[in-house]
Design a protein around this nucleic acid. Structure first.
Lengths: 266, 266
DNA sequence: GCGATTTGTCTGATATTTCAGACGATATAT
DNA sequence: ATATATCGTCTGAAATATCAGACAAATCGC
């Protein structure tokens, strides 16, 4: 009945797919957690079994182990489970062990607080763009985004910076063709994309608008790591109609902060 | 050499120890992550193998799987590994799926920002107290604490609230004897501890000083869950010499905020 | 109310994964 | 420079964790 497993590429375990092979517990755990992350809401064991293509009995076994370790926890009274407290602690440890990363986050939060705009820290996860952390603008109607949701790289301003260290051929190999198709159906020409990456590299920033959606203006500035590779970016996500003066002001702030966080020479 | 397996109650696997039995991959993963959390810094594979009592070859296998999934990541160039980005994303998802938890965190941050004091969100993890999140006071010398570090319950103000739903016998069974011994060698009498829990329950807050260390004054207020059980507390950690007027002011704020976050009746 | 689906738990068999140990290469110490 | 310890990778064999399926109880749908 179902044959089109067309795994689009994804990072990490890659393949997944396939039907009834016996799989290792660890791999199932990894798939389970990633599936929950994608789904972004609690799931029942039966659903999880389907999501990761595992036998129900095995899934129960695994889920129970993870529950006991508090890596998952029960949500509600309908047998739903979601990430548990242990995950919070592990994640916190990740975010704090590294003084540089901590400074980056603090800066992002400060920028958000000072300007009242939505500020984000972004990076690559596999061949997708993800928001690693964010500081949403206040107010009843706000532009916000979920941390951890994977988005095709060509849809984003940050993406143009994050690929800056690759050659054109590498980029061509890296980005799946379908990722050039925007949500509204338009398709970005690969050559344009490559040109924009080159331009972002020399300018030291990138701006886009009307790509992933119609109502945002995104600006991103690179935070190169010690080797000079842009592993993270700092961004503002503004309403499209933000006046140009304000935009220039914010861009200047963004670039200055990102530069101060750079680990490469200067 | 080691014979006291006295499972003290703790959560999850607890003891670790034991000799050369064959263990399941999942369990090894859980032990590995908890060991890394306790250690609070990157470790080499060889060290990890020792920490979790696993054969080296197995440990390599597991670590490599987790690295590929970005649940761990390489740190430095000496073969150290620590939590990876995926953990950050999972932890973020944990912290945001639940509107109530999100409100609690926001409140804690606001309290920290408004007062300039160290504010914490605390809870139980197994039979130990842990800081679940915190907002450290600014300034060059600050009182701060690490999220996720487990501390004996009797050393803390929050602990006296978090056990409020238990009977004396349950508490006696729950808290290991050795947890009544403070870092400086003094021992809290069990009867005193029980009395303080009862007192905290009727007063609706708890204060301690000079327990876990000599220089802090801690105050905690309960956040009951829907069943009325105090699953979390909000705390301030102040310098001991904070004047009483200021302390009262902060305590009032703390109690008011905690009450507003309560899920039980009112 | 009754049939259909789903849930959570068990069981036994076997395909797999863990484990011990060996190996050369690399670091650390004397 | 030589000895010692550790690193990272492989291998075969044995122990066992995963799997399919059965089951009763709970839930759903109408």
């Amino acid at each position: 009945m179902d044959n089109n497993k067309m795994e689009t590429g994804g990072h990490g375990n890659g393949g997944a797919s396939s039907g009834g092979e016996r799989k290792r517990g660890i791999d199932r755990v990894i798939m389970l957690l990633e599936a929950l992350l994608k789904r972004r809401e609690p799931a029942r064991v039966g659903d999880i079994a389907k999501m990761i293509n595992a036998p129900r009995s095995t899934t129960y076994e695994i889920v129970n182990s993870l529950l006991e370790a508090e890596m998952l926890e029960n949500v509600g009274s309908e047998g739903h489970v979601y990430f548990g407290r242990a995950m919070h602690l592990f994640g916190w440890a990740y975010g704090h062990h590294n003084a540089h990363y901590r400074r980056v986050i603090e800066n992002m939060e400060a920028m958000g607080a000072e300007t009242g705009e939505t500020a984000q820290l972004c990076g690559l996860r596999g061949n997708k763009y993800v928001v690693l952390d964010c500081r949403d603008s206040p107010g009843p109607f706000r532009i916000s985004s979920d941390v951890g949701v994977e988005v095709p790289v060509p849809w984003t301003a940050s993406g143009r910076l994050l690929l800056g260290h690759m050659t054109d051929d590498e980029i061509r190999a890296f980005i799946p063709r379908e990722d050039y198709r925007l949500p509204d159906g338009r398709v970005i020409a690969e050559s344009d994309f490559l040109a924009e990456i080159a331009e972002a590299r020399v300018r030291g920033y990138s701006e886009t608008s009307g790509l992933a959606d119609r109502f945002t203006w995104c600006m991103a500035a690179p935070i190169p790591d010690a080797r000079g590779i842009v592993s993270h970016t700092l961004c503002f996500v503004l309403p499209v109609d933000t006046p140009i003066g304000r935009r220039e002001e914010l861009l200047a702030l963004l670039r200055e902060r990102a530069r101060s966080l750079s680990l490469s020479g200067n």
